[in-house]
Design a protein around this nucleic acid. Structure first.
Length: 507
RNA sequence: GGCCCGUUCGUCUAAGGGCUAGGACACCACCCUUUCACGGUGGUGAUACGGGUUCGAAUCCCGUACGGGCUACCA
């Protein structure tokens, strides 16, 4: 009997939720749902200096917007909490002590200044970043070099210390990554990573192992940037809980920006969002734009993220969340990093807007077009409008431009596009047309078009030369769906009014 | 510098030893549309390089080059 699948997303609440973070959530979620497992969100807030108020609530807001609700978390409850690492502090200390007792870790009293000095002294062009490792540890201020008596003395005097793992001299550590196969490391090249900080908080290395064990995590997904620290975690699993208990690891390929790992700066620089939702830095008040506010549908956002590094082997590209769950498999995740392409991202969104139902789109349109809740009548009109314009919206932001004129007379009428071929005959035609809309029942779009063309022919005017002016009178510019469809939705009174108004601007 | 990971059109990718190397985005052309989109048709465009293994390699192995990540008492 297989163990019940349990996965976790373990963000550190320090700011906006990055594209890559959402993709990690998504893969966790897909895998959990696919295997009827449990998706846990654990807050990694062990660095108190980096605490950012609001970041945690923001994170859950993002997950909610995406439709990726955790099964267990700070906000969702669960029996294996607390789900915030700062609230599990004493647990980690216990394990750090165990490691020291077994001689697998040691106390280190070096101050940050001393470490800096050591690195500065040892740095050479050939070795620009010296490590705290077996080469130098006997020359530093730690329990290994100092001996038991001196160590106890320092401890009793309340000297601040950290706990470091004692990296074995000569060992090869290997594991099988679900995405890249066997990966191995030689411990002789590794350093003695800090496990417990001077403030008593664990570092990521200790916390992730202890918590994954206690929360019974079976599969761990994380970004490829964590691969180099895998050997530390393997060792801790071996020392603390046994390797058989260790979750299966999958190191996800990185999402790259135009220059390496995608960063928030890239977004600002190249004009695309990087965060899921708008993030306002509480200190600087600086706002970083999110996909939501930029006008992405969450369905599209998830879809494009899933296809960045994964595909189902077919040529299918548009997937709903349920379809992703059904089709998902770790084996089909790529091992190479993927460069984020904003143009393709927009294409996904456009596809989703086109395929979404009027009902799905209604609240999106309403929210962007009305300052107050729409009346039943406005809603009815809105539905017709959505049907007419949704194919022309790539981002939800486009709604204002593509649909606004149905509800508000155009502020600017591009008369310059009309005046070139304007004439007294044409003016007469439009005066007649306005009058028709004002007084005669005109029927549907097809009937209006027929009448329009017949009248044009009778006056020896080319219908083609009248259509564009008509459009501009109604919408203000050279865009929008078929003119007679617009006139129909606008209704005769409004259509007549706009023609009449435009005529006042023309010779 | 050291360690780790990676390398198919500009970008995302398919092809898990036998092929005219397929699709999508973007781009270009044409068609449709008496606006602009949508849509349709077609086009430009890739297996980093060098060695092996094999009857046969994008696919397996080695090396080189290039790219990325890590190298904090951050995650």
């Amino acid at each position: 009997m297989e163990k019940k699948v349990r996965v976790r997303f373990a963000p550190s609440p320090t700011g906006g939720l990055h594209l890559g973070g959402v993709r990690t959530v998504l893969f966790n979620y897909l895998f959990a749902k696919k295997h009827k497992g449990t998706f846990v969100v654990r807050i990694e807030d062990t660095d108190q200096r980096r605490y950012v108020p609001g970041a945690e609530d923001y994170l859950f807001d993002c997950l909610r917007w995406c439709g990726l609700e955790p099964d267990e978390s700070v906000q969702h409850g669960g029996s294996l909490g607390p789900y915030r690492q700062s609230e599990r502090k004493s647990l980690y200390k216990k394990y750090a002590d165990t490691l020291i007792e077994k001689g697998l870790a040691y106390y280190a009293f070096d101050t940050p200044e001393e470490l800096e000095k050591m690195r500065a002294e040892l740095a050479t062009p050939a070795n620009p970043s010296p490590q705290y490792d077996r080469q130098v540890r006997m020359q530093l201020r730690n329990s290994l070099a100092l001996g038991a008596a001196k160590t106890n003395e320092l401890l009793e005097a309340g000297t601040p210390y950290v706990v470091r793992i004692k990296m074995p001299e000569q060992d090869t550590l290997r594991f099988t990554d679900l995405i890249r196969g066997e990966v191995s490391f030689d411990t002789s090249t590794l350093d003695d990573k800090v496990l417990l900080k001077a403030d008593g908080m664990p570092t990521y290395h200790l916390a992730v192992v202890v918590d994954d064990y206690h929360m019974q995590i079976t599969h761990a997904f994380r970004g490829e940037e964590w691969l180099p620290s895998a050997p530390v975690h393997i060792l801790l699993w071996k020392y603390l809980f046994g390797l058989v208990q260790m979750p299966q690891w999958a190191h996800l390929p990185l999402i790259l920006g135009p220059n390496g790992k995608l960063s928030k700066r890239d977004g600002a620089k190249y004009g695309f969002p990087v965060f899921a939702m708008n993030w306002t830095d509480p200190a600087s008040k600086e706002i970083t734009e999110g996909f939501k506010e930029k006008g992405f549908l969450p369905e599209a956002f998830l879809n494009l993220l899933a296809l960045l590094g994964w595909n189902d082997g077919s040529e299918k590209e548009i997937f709903s969340l349920q379809e992703l769950i059904d089709a998902f498999s770790i084996e089909r995740i790529h091992s190479a990093g993927a460069r984020f392409d904003y143009e393709k991202a927009k294409w996904f969104n456009h596809e989703w807007i086109k395929k979404s139902s009027v009902d799905r789109l209604l609240p999106e349109f309403e929210q962007r077009l009305f300052s107050q809740p729409a009346t039943a009548e406005e809603r009815k009109k809105l539905c017709q409008v959505i049907e007419l314009v949704k194919d022309r919206c790539t981002l939800l932001m486009d709604i204002k431009e593509q649909a606004g004129f149905f509800f508000t007379d155009p502020l600017q009428v591009d008369t310059a596009a009309i005046t070139g071929k304007w004439s007294a005959e044409k003016r007469a035609f439009f005066e007649w047309l306005a009058d028709q809309y004002q007084h005669a029942p005109l029927g549907d779009a097809a009937a209006q078009e027929q009448l329009f063309k017949e009248k044009a022919a009778s006056l020896q005017l080319k219908a083609g030369e009248l259509l564009l002016p008509f459009r501009i009178m109604l919408v203000g510019g050279k865009f929008g769906p078929g003119v007679f469809d617009i006139a129909t939705v606008l209704g005769p009174a409004t259509t007549a009014r706009r023609i009449a108004y435009a005529l006042t601007l023309l010779p």
